[in-house]
């Protein structure tokens, strides 16, 4: 991998962010809307007496972190779709740029964009609802890392599917994270799922991250087991994602789809 080529991919997507207002919408608008809606909802919940302590904070934390995961997976796939829509793939892959260099550059840009969204969400939660995520950030960071790693793996899988099935699969760029949401235990603990779903949910790194996040917020303790399990699962998913992507890419090359994508 050559750094100058990765830098060029970063430059290409940075130009796109500068010129395309949709990116500002994705980066800022939705995190703001989500945190405002959920924030007001938690204000309403605070009036009740039956809530366990920490529930409101868990909800706000979950909204912010799920926003990060969702944005990362979506922006990675949309970043690739932009090459496809602009018919730029042939020029890119007829150059010395490798697929791994391209994906690395895309991950860097996507990470930067997701961090903007995370910061905006956290800032609004702090300003409007006195929810100080920054205070817990050191203990939340390992779980944020796991969410990002899983989003990268899922982004690679979705990108591979788009390579193979072209724009027929593009709706997945926006909705793939949604498929995982019910089983990721974003807003409720794993124990609240029906027993037959728990084994499936617990092999998702997102579930481990949100379980860990709740422990940080509710008890102030860091759950090393949730972090370790999430990291181990991420390693497995990441290896799977790489092999899956290569398989999809070679299938696309064999079928001549790289030059016919639209």
């Amino acid at each position: 991998m050559k750094l100058y080529r990765i830098r060029s991919v970063i430059r290409r997507h940075t130009y796109e962010v500068i010129h395309n207002a949709n990116h500002i919408t994705y980066m800022v608008y939705w995190p703001v809307v989500n945190i405002l809606v959920w924030g007001f909802f938690t204000l309403y919940l605070r009036h009740g007496d039956a809530l366990k302590p920490g529930v409101v904070s868990c909800l706000l934390g979950a909204v912010i972190l799920w926003g990060l995961f969702n944005a990362f997976q979506r922006d990675m796939a949309v970043g690739f779709l932009e090459e496809l829509w602009s018919r730029n793939l042939v020029s890119l892959f007829a150059s010395p740029l490798s697929v791994s260099e391209y994906v690395t550059g895309l991950i860097v840009v996507t990470l930067a964009k997701a961090m903007v969204g995370l910061s905006v969400g956290a800032l609004i939660a702090w300003l409007f609802y006195h929810y100080d995520m920054f205070l817990m950030l050191p203990m939340l960071l390992p779980f944020i890392l796991n969410l990002v790693l899983f989003a990268v793996a899922m982004g690679i899988v979705v990108t591979g599917l788009i390579f193979r099935y072209t724009t027929k699969f593009q709706a997945m760029a926006w909705s793939f994270a949604g498929i995982l949401m019910p089983l990721s235990c974003v807003f409720y603990p794993l124990s609240s799922l029906p027993s037959f779903l728990r084994p499936i949910a617990s092999i998702l790194p997102t579930t481990q991250s949100f379980e860990g996040m709740r422990e940080v917020i509710e008890s102030g303790g860091f759950s090393i087991s949730h972090f370790r399990l999430g990291l181990g699962l991420n390693l497995i998913y990441f290896i799977f994602a790489i092999f899956f992507f290569r398989w999809m890419f070679e299938a696309a090359r064999s079928r001549g789809l790289l030059v016919k994508m639209e």
Binding site: R7, S8, E16, H19, N20, E83
Partner: peptide, 16 residues
């Protein structure tokens, strides 16, 4: 990419 200028597009490829 249609939103990028001629110069920006060529700078990207010059980098690659």
């Amino acid at each position: 990419p249609v939103r990028l200028t001629v110069l920006e597009n060529l700078r990207v490829f010059a980098g690659i």
